[in-house]
């Protein structure tokens, strides 16, 4: 349904989520709420990257077992058997043309296996976001630790109260 609204609804969603996070970071007074806003912001970025990696009619970037070992798939239904045969013949045709330039595939354990790029979603954004999640956890942890230290120091996690305390101690 969303798709009929706009072919790029994923960008609308990521912008809205990101702006919710940005608003929380700018205008919330409470440091924990600011950190929650930062997490929402990071989630929006992750959503953006992962939605870029989507291809129409593709699946997750992991080869399934039957695809790597087609000989194990013979006991399957007829339709799938046909599919495998078609895949095998396609693989052989492609392999002949592949051997001309394929120095990367030299010594491959699956020389007859040919993968069409459009069958699998783009793995690179997934990898980048895996690392982004790790950075998100790290920054959230450090932020919470600093917030806890501030609470021990000032007895408050409200930004305005801490600023008032600093100002009055300076005067």
């Amino acid at each position: 349904m969303l798709e009929s609204l706009s072919p790029s609804f994923n960008y609308w969603i990521y912008v809205i989520i990101m702006m919710i996070g940005l608003y929380a970071m700018i205008s919330k007074n409470n440091f924990v709420k600011k950190l929650i806003g930062m997490s929402i912001f990071q989630t929006a970025i992750i959503l953006f990257y992962v939605s870029i990696s989507v291809k129409e009619g593709s699946t997750i970037p992991i080869l399934y077992h039957d695809q790597i070992h087609p000989e194990h798939g013979e006991h399957h239904e007829d339709g799938q058997g046909d599919h495998h045969q078609a895949l095998d013949t396609l693989a052989k045709e492609h392999h002949d043309s592949h051997a001309d330039h394929g120095d990367a595939a030299a010594g491959s354990h699956y020389p007859d296996l040919v993968i069409k790029p459009d069958d699998f979603s783009n793995p690179l954004p997934h990898v980048l976001m895996l690392t982004a999640i790790v950075v998100g956890v790290s920054t959230l942890g450090v932020g919470l630790a600093i917030t806890q230290k501030l609470y021990g120091e000032f007895g408050s996690i409200e930004e305005s109260e801490i600023l008032d305390t600093i100002k009055s101690s300076n005067d």
Partner: peptide, 28 residues
Amino acid sequence: ANSYRLSQYYITETIHVTAVPNMVTAVL
């Protein structure tokens, strides 16, 4: 992002050069 040859190389060649079916782990 999807038609650039780097990500296409990852999809088509990972199994040949690393024998790992999970492309995300292989790239990572």
